[in-house]
Design a protein around this nucleic acid. Structure first.
Length: 1034
RNA sequence: GGGCCUGUAGCUUAGCUUGGUGGAGCAUCCGGCUGAUAACCGGAAGGUCCCCGGUUCAAAUCCGGGUUGGCCCA
């Protein structure tokens, strides 16, 4: 076990050493910066980096995202495109504020104001880049080509200025409004929460839910029954809502007449007796007026009547929903539709206003029991139930959240719904189902975008307002300067709040509306603001819009993917990106989310020092499609490293070992048509690979491409081409065989290196430099083009058949326990046409046979056998059949078949004699004892001749001896080309083999002398054929 | 609570669009090969294709319900 770990380490550290060497070279030669300019002047491939927040450490999932981005961009760069890759940092937002609050030991807005906005945002600014060094180092270490020298930074004034410009564009189109929105609000912290924060705080709670009776005006003793889980909102009730298309009933119940939904009546009243007086549609109830439950607040608009709404469900309650527009989103929307008054008698700290005399100053939820009691006393309560449901709590202080109507500024995205959907049509989604599914569905129901945040650290909303109601949206720094005639030190709060200017309508002072904006708007503006458009880079912006490609986690569907599309639709009515890869999260080995509290987080830095970046990159891209969740297993990653990168390094090592010995340089390559069949095969496969990989890459199919590359490197190149051609590299003298082998292997390695360069940039560059690449880095090379003229489909088919033949031959040997080291005389192959002398050599050496025959019919190798057919014997012989059968089975089955066919068989049992004819037997074909078969019954069959002549036996011994000598050479760490002297003693049978194959043994083991002695004093060996002792000296 | 995705050998996964005897790799065991490779080759063993129901001559595959894990939303 311990050994295994050491092995894995050393294997992995080979990778790390290689990468560190390449990294050092990249640093020396400034490769990354040069790549950023590579192909400048050519056509653009327009990529956009989604800005991470640099105040948290990068994790494995960030490496995943960056690998996906980098691989596509590197590919396009090699394909000849100029690929600008500007880095970006997302700086604003509540998470930053919260981090600073923690640092300062404060936790609400009052405390921030006490501390001072100016020092507070200074702290925010500092905190933003807490971990920027880690991000930069990670980016460099994984080889992500990204411009970190000149990134876009969402908190810079130039960036903010472009954001302001876009907001003014939207404002000019009349798409920016102020109005109420219902927001989740923590009464204790005094702030609304972002949806992300709310999502963290859902808990299952059990609360009282009550059935309340609303007295109908103008109908004696008649009530509408409604249901609520928040009794405290009844004080703010202004309407009831019913479903327009459902049936409602008026029933007689306990001497009163009650109106509720028919479906609900059946469920709620099933144990009781009630009589239906009247049946009607919900829409029939619209406009019915009722008496308010409470009269603390006098509404300023008509209220207290029945409305209709589609959101009313029959899942629970009575099918009648009590409506308080100030305290629920559905309620609010309904209020807008019916122009209902907004009754809001609750203070921001969650207590009732003084006008609610009985409960003034009481926290609303605490007032519930007493409100219930009050209703009960007045006979308006019909029942109380315990009701369990999910309710949000403040994730920081555990206070139940309240939904409040708050004023806010929003973009009317609902008005742009059709544009969003049309623009989405032009986007190429990976995986494709996101387009119509998750994202498309979201667009179908898109809501207005609540842009405003009552916070401090964010892009300030550039809206100034005068008390006369006049508004002005500022679209640039220059405009602000001109209006105010003041210098603006920076665009953040509180500085920007101090800027005022006279109202053009009334001359009074205009003040900024003190919101900052949602930070998703910041990052969604990146295509515009990263270039400081339209103040600078107009031409560059036009060249880069829309972007060709972005890639982020699937959690960004309603985040960045949406904000990008929303802003470009609102400003330009165009999508801002054409293709997008949504990748899934990286989970731990058990499929659980990685989190610090679970302690299952994989530290990227550890992986960099143990396994290296290419291993992580390759594993993440090749294991499954990017949108499949990655169950990150270090073992699986090591396996990917071992099998792919390890094999590649090894093939390269093999090439280098012999190329150095022979002083081989790639020059004057032999024309492929003049190379051996096996070379033309590998070049066929290579060029096919180029074609197929390119096809996958063009379709953003990184996993498909990596699978093809893996197969070629491991199976075709290493396990087949190198394996079957090893001897061509060993030969001492220069030959055409050898030259072409080098040429073909060199070309294969170089092309493969270029193909994998986007995936495993370090290994690719190492292969390139080892092969003597001319440029400073492989990454400046063009991506290979397939030479389709070299693709020979017949050759590919032939080789597939040949491999099958070898496989079946080995299987045939295995069936009879015949070692491959023992040469056999003949293989007989059925199925394919002859392969030709070149390829047949491969079969001869792989199967260790002297001859190969191709036959159409193998029946001559089979003998006919027979056994009695029990179905025939039974009916004929009855009780004796078993005994007759036993008797016949004593005979040789081959002889039996012959006799049965010729004369029939006579048997005597218990004194009775029987004659069995030809038809009483079943016949079988069995292979003769001399042969062994692989693939019997298949399309291709291989038969091997097991007969061993004296010669073959002796050669078998010779090969055993060679094998032992080679093992000893290896153990002694001899140089590959070291010459040796051999002294061998042993059993006579062994020595006779050695004598006959003296020259062969010397040639194979690079021996200058081979002496047979009486008693060699080297190593003892015990092989199948006998014992021997071998002494090697130099 | 809702929407989307997901579940296949001990582990990682292919197959699902278009129904027809589930296929790899790793790990295990037996055997073989080896002067590039702790690699490789032959063989064995290992499956409730998450569960239940439906459609069908036939379901891993299509449909419905449930469930696991994930994401998004509430």
């Amino acid at each position: 076990m311990a050994e295994e770990i050491v092995e894995n380490r050393s294997r992995a550290s080979e990778s790390v050493a290689l990468e560190e060497e390449v990294l050092a070279r990249w640093r020396d030669q400034d490769i990354i910066r040069r790549l950023l300019k590579h192909n400048k002047g050519n056509e653009y491939f327009r990529f956009l980096e989604g800005p991470p927040t640099a105040n948290a450490k990068p994790g494995v999932h960030h490496i995943f995202a960056r690998t996906i981005k980098d691989t596509i961009c590197r590919y396009k760069n090699m394909k000849g495109f100029y690929v600008p890759r500007m880095g970006g940092w997302d700086c604003h937002g509540l998470p930053v504020e919260i981090a600073v609050e923690k640092q300062l030991g404060i936790e609400n807005k009052e405390q921030i104001e006490e501390y001072g906005i100016e020092p507070f945002i200074k702290k925010c600014k500092e905190s933003v880049f807490t971990n920027i060094d880690q991000w930069s180092e990670m980016t460099e270490r994984i080889g992500y080509v990204l411009d970190l020298d000149d990134p876009y930074i969402t908190m810079n004034d130039s960036y903010i200025e472009s954001v302001w410009w876009s907001l003014k564009e939207i404002w000019k189109k009349g798409l920016l409004n102020e109005g109420h929105t219902i927001v989740p609000f923590c009464p204790r912290c005094g702030t609304s929460l972002s949806s992300h924060e709310v999502a963290q705080g859902y808990k299952e709670v059990e609360e009282p839910s009550i059935f309340v009776k609303f007295k109908v005006i103008g109908q004696e003793n008649t009530f509408i029954l409604a249901w609520t889980t928040t009794p405290w909102t009844l004080i703010s009730n202004v309407a009831l809502a019913v479903h327009p298309d459902k049936f409602y009933v008026k029933i007689k119940y306990k001497e009163q007449e009650i109106i509720l939904a028919e479906e609900r009546a059946k469920i709620l009243m099933k144990e009781e007796n009630y009589e239906v007086i009247q049946r009607m549609m919900g829409s029939d109830l619209e406009g019915v007026r009722y008496e308010p439950l409470f009269d603390f607040v006098k509404p300023d608009k008509p209220a207290y009547y029945v409305t209709t709404a589609m959101f009313v469900t029959m899942e629970d309650g009575t099918g009648v929903v009590h409506t308080a527009p100030a305290f629920g989103e559905d309620d609010y929307d309904l209020g807008v539709r019916y122009d209902l008054p907004m009754v809001q008698p609750v203070k921001p700290n969650g207590t009732f206003e003084d006008i609610i005399t009985p409960w003034k100053g009481v926290f609303v939820k605490d007032a519930d029991p007493s409100i219930i009691k009050d209703l009960e006393k007045r006979g308006l309560l019909e029942g109380i139930h315990r009701y369990a449901h999910q309710y949000p709590f403040c994730w920081r202080c555990d206070t139940p959240l309240l939904y409040y109507a708050r004023k806010g500024v929003y973009i009317r995205m609902s008005q742009l719904r059709k544009n969003l959907i049309d623009n989405n049509e032009q986007i190429n989604w990976f995986p494709p189902n996101i387009k119509k599914g998750r994202f498309g569905n979201f667009l179908e129901e898109v809501k207005d975008w609540n842009l405003s945040r009552e916070r401090y650290w964010g892009t300030p909303l550039p809206l100034w307002r005068c008390e006369c109601g006049s508004e002005h949206m500022v679209g640039s720094i220059a405009e602000l300067k001109e209006l105010s005639a003041k210098e603006v030190p920076e665009l953040h709060r509180p500085y920007v709040d101090m800027i005022t200017f006279p109202c053009k309508d009334c001359g009074k002072e205009m003040k900024r509306v003190e919101y900052v904006i949602d930070c998703w708007y910041d990052s969604g503006s990146a295509p515009i603001a990263s270039l400081h458009y339209p103040f600078e880079n107009k031409e560059e912006f036009e060249k880069q819009f829309p972007r060709d490609y972005i890639a982020e986690g699937i959690d960004q569907t309603r985040g960045w993917f949406y904000s990008l599309l929303a802003i470009s639709t609102a400003v330009f009515d165009k999508p801002s990106y054409k293709s997008v890869i949504c990748h899934a999260l990286v989970l731990d080995g058990e499929g659980k989310k990685m989190s610090k509290s679970k302690g299952n987080v994989v530290d990227p830095w550890e992986l960099f020092t143990t396994d290296g970046a290419d291993a992580i990159r390759w594993y993440l891209l090749s294991s499954s499609a990017p949108w499949r969740p990655k169950l990150f297993s270090i073992d699986a990653m090591r396996e990917a490293n071992r099998s792919f990168l390890g094999t590649l390094r090894n093939v390269l090592g093999f090439f280098k070992t012999y190329a150095d010995l022979d002083g081989y340089k790639y020059a004057d390559a032999v024309d492929p048509s003049k190379r051996p069949d096996v070379d033309r095969w590998v070049l066929s496969k290579l060029n096919l690979l180029v074609q197929e990989v390119t096809d996958r890459m063009e379709n953003y199919d990184l996993t498909g491409a990596s699978g093809l590359l893996n197969y070629f490197v491991v199976e075709d190149l290493s396990n087949w081409y190198v394996r079957v051609n090893r001897r061509r590299f060993w030969g001492a003298e220069d030959s055409m065989e050898k030259k072409t082998a080098y040429d073909s292997l060199y070309e294969s390695l170089l092309t493969v290196a270029k193909l994998i360069a986007p995936f495993a940039p370090f290994h690719a560059d190492k292969v390139y430099s080892t092969l003597g690449g001319e440029l400073d880095s492989i990454h400046f090379e063009p991506y290979p083009d397939a030479d389709t003229g070299l693709i020979d489909p017949d050759m590919i088919t032939k080789m597939e058949d040949l491999k099958t033949v070898v496989e079946l031959g080995r299987s045939a040997r295995g069936a009879k326990n015949m070692k491959i080291r023992q040469p056999l005389q003949k293989a007989v192959v059925k199925g394919p046409d002859p392969f030709g002398p070149g390829l047949e050599t491969i079969i001869r050496s792989e199967l260790n046979v002297k001859d190969i025959d191709f036959e159409k019919d193998l029946s001559t190798f089979f003998d006919m056998t027979a056994d009695p057919d029990p179905k025939k014997l039974g009916p004929k012989l009855k009780a004796d059949s078993g005994k007759v059968r036993d008797e016949i089975m004593k005979m040789d089955p081959k002889q039996l078949a012959k006799v049965a066919k010729e004369t029939g068989v006579d048997v005597e049992v218990n004194g009775r004699s029987y004659h069995l004819g030809e038809d009483d037997f079943r016949y079988h074909e069995v292979l003769g004892d001399r042969w062994t078969i692989g693939g019997e019954g298949g399309e291709i069959e291989v038969i091997l001749d097991l007969h061993l002549s004296e010669d073959l036996k002796q050669e078998g011994i010779a090969r055993e001896v060679v094998r032992r000598i080679q093992t000893m050479r290896k153990d002694k760490d001899l140089e590959y080309d070291a010459r040796i002297t051999l002294r061998i003693s042993g059993d006579p049978v062994i020595l006779s083999g050695v004598k006959v194959f003296n020259d062969y043994i010397m040639f194979e083991t690079l021996a200058d002398v081979l002496e047979i002695v009486d008693d060699a004093v080297g190593q003892d060996w015990d092989i199948d054929q006998g014992k021997l002792n071998i002494l090697i000296s130099i």
